[in-house]
Computed example of a mutant assay.
Amino acid sequence: MRRLRTVVVAALAASALITAPAVALAQGENAVDVTSMAPPAKVEGVKAAAELNIQYQIQETGYWCGPAATRIAISAKNGNPPSQQQLANELPTTTNGTDWIGQVTRVLNNHVAGGWYETKEMPNDPPTQAQRDLLWRDIVLDVDKGYAIVANIVAPANNHPPGYPNYTIYHYFTIIGYNSDNMTVKIADPANFGGNQIYWLTFNQLATLIPPKGYSA
């Protein structure tokens, strides 16, 4: 069991599946450059790749990405996870979404034995090399031990996962696998944008999506 360490910070914008055309980046702007980023530090003594078995569900409302992503993560360890409605009540989630990743951490630890989850903030945009190293290490070690990770992301129009509409998306999704040979991560995305439910992202792109939010790992 890891010691639970939560860093409390001032709330940023409500973090759920919220569309914000007013803050979308212009279509003509250049995409985020991830080619120059150094690879994260290698994690020794783990498999080259691993994936978790989970129960996938599409989020039941436009603002329940937090409860849905949390349920997916719980299902990796608990074969009878709570409903999205119950988790929305516990987080709590409102029509404005789920405010902070720390709420997800608390609920995960209520439903997954061992108090494993911690809140990890990534306030720097772009993230520092130390933050990238920690994110990769958390993904590899968590997935190897059977724990899925919930990430709170901000995806502007020039840096989207597959199928996302062309404006800034505030969202939660679940990380359920990794492949260190090609530095990719497997995502279970409750939004189902364009029918994209479970897909692979490069680690570099994931690392640009989380700031200035955080993740539960």
Rank of each mutant, 00 (worst) to 15 (best):
I176A: 08
V112H: 03
G115I: 01
K145A: 11
G115D: 04
T184A: 00
G177P: 06
V112E: 06
S83C: 05
P127T: 11
G177D: 05
N166K: 11
S180H: 03
V140H: 10
L87W: 03
P82C: 14
S83Q: 06
F173H: 03
V185Q: 02
N124T: 15
N80S: 11
N109E: 08
I187A: 02
W116R: 12
Y147T: 14
A188S: 02
D144S: 05
G163H: 09
L91H: 01
R71L: 09
A188P: 00
P67A: 15
V143R: 02
S83D: 10
T168I: 06
R71A: 05
S83R: 06
L108C: 14
T94A: 11
S75N: 02
P165Q: 12
A88L: 03
Q84H: 05
Q103G: 07
W100Y: 14
A68L: 07
N80K: 12
D181Y: 03
M183A: 01
N110H: 15
L91W: 01
T70H: 11
N159L: 14
P162Q: 12
P81N: 02
P126Q: 13
I153S: 02
P156V: 02
K186N: 00
V140E: 11
R106L: 14
L135R: 02
N166E: 10
V104N: 10
G146A: 09
F173I: 10
A191Q: 01
N124L: 13
I153T: 09
H160Q: 12
H171L: 04
D138W: 07
V104W: 08
N89F: 04
G146C: 10
N159V: 10
Q86F: 05
E121S: 07
T184H: 00
G146L: 09
P165N: 06
N166C: 08
K77Q: 14
F173P: 02
A130M: 06
N110D: 15
H111W: 07
L87F: 03
N152I: 06
D133V: 14
A188E: 00
P81G: 00
E90K: 04
W116T: 09
T95L: 11
A73D: 04
Y170I: 01
A148D: 06
Q85T: 14
N182L: 05
T105W: 11
P82W: 15
I101A: 05
G62H: 13
H160R: 11
E90D: 04
R137L: 05
G102E: 13
P67M: 15
I101Q: 03
D189A: 05
G114Q: 09
V107H: 09
G146H: 07
Y117T: 08
I175D: 03
K186F: 00
N89A: 10
G146Y: 09
L141S: 10
D99G: 12
Y167R: 14
W64L: 09
T95F: 11
A151E: 12
W100F: 14
T94D: 12
D138K: 13
I169P: 01
